[in-house]
Amino acid sequence: MKPVVPYLRVLAGLFAGVTLWLAIVEIIHGNVAESLIQLLFFVGLGYLAIGKPLRDRHARVEADRAALAARAEAGHQAFLAGDRSAAFAPPPEPSPPPKMRRGVLIAALVAAAFVLIGIIGDISDGLDAPSGNDATTTPQTSARVTPGSTTPAPSATSAAATVPVVTSAPAAVSTTTANAAAAGTSAVMPDVECMDLQTAQDTIQAAGVFYSRSVDATGEGRMQVQDRNWIVVGQQPSAGAVVGEGEALLSVVKEVEFAGCR
């Protein structure tokens, strides 16, 4: 059983890294209670992973200090007795740290790579909302996204993404126009549908408004971490309306979910 223990600590460290990342995701989505639960799991798994090595290192340091103190006391007594050679003898060598087995080191590197790849994949995927929030998301329909349409376009292939149709809200245009007119900075809203989110933001900034907002068109609350991986399928207000800072709202889906514009 003893040779397996280091690998079990590596496994505990792997799950500790996963639960820490899940806690960070919960905090990003505002789920404080769930994040605290994940942090408790992280602390427990982290202790199982590195608790014993830390205790062993502390015991080794304390033993070295005790040996050094004993050697100093013995030298002092030898000096008082007139034995100068014993009094000025070199201190004892510190105890060497235990060597990590090659297999354990490889397992630790593989576990770290697994956690890192999972984090990178989650970030590139838009930090999907945790499963506990699924009940609050809007239902999806089996249709491709067709901007400016009130009926879903027929699917061309079986790989079409299932996302709801996004339509602009004409009623919000007049309110947005009035708010923008009262604001200090305003511009004419350009047509940015079918652009990737980064290009759409740059276009709105070129029109004279720096700050725009984006939202997941599927209602799942996914975050747009890499703007160029998202496509604008709806905008509020519509093109030609006056818009102020923070009033441009872009509905987006992932690039792989986008079926193209008519």
Rank of each mutant, 00 (worst) to 15 (best):
F79D: 12
G148W: 12
I231W: 02
K52P: 07
V188E: 06
W21E: 03
A172M: 10
Q224E: 14
A86L: 08
L250F: 03
V25D: 04
A59C: 08
R101S: 13
V165H: 03
T137L: 02
E73H: 09
A89C: 01
P98N: 03
V192C: 09
P94F: 11
A49F: 13
T151Q: 14
F258H: 13
A69Y: 15
A135I: 00
G118I: 11
G221I: 05
V43C: 13
A182F: 01
S186K: 15
V253P: 09
F88W: 09
D216I: 10
A171L: 10
G240W: 04
R65E: 14
D56S: 03
Q226E: 09
L249K: 01
P96A: 06
A135S: 02
F42M: 09
E220W: 01
A112V: 12
S186Q: 15
P98V: 04
M189C: 08
V110G: 08
L8D: 06
S212F: 09
P130R: 05
A111E: 03
L11T: 10
N31V: 01
D134I: 11
T185F: 02
P130N: 07
S131D: 05
G103I: 02
G260C: 07
A143E: 12
G240C: 10
A178Q: 14
G221H: 07
E193D: 03
A160W: 07
R228L: 12
V25Y: 00
V5N: 12
E247L: 14
P130I: 06
D191Y: 02
K254T: 10
T138Y: 05
A187E: 15
A161K: 01
T175W: 09
A49S: 15
S158A: 15
S85T: 14
S131V: 11
V18Q: 14
M195G: 08
L11N: 03
P53E: 10
S168A: 07
V173R: 12
C261T: 08
V243P: 02
R60A: 06
M189H: 03
E255F: 00
P92E: 06
V5Y: 14
R55S: 12
G234K: 01
A241N: 15
V233Y: 00
T203A: 15
G121L: 11
E245D: 07
L40R: 08
F114C: 11
V166C: 10
R71K: 14
S131Y: 04
T203K: 13
I106S: 08
G51E: 04
F210K: 09
P154N: 12
G148I: 06
D196E: 01
M189D: 05
V232L: 01
I37Q: 04
D128N: 04
C261R: 05
A181Q: 15
I37E: 02
V215D: 10
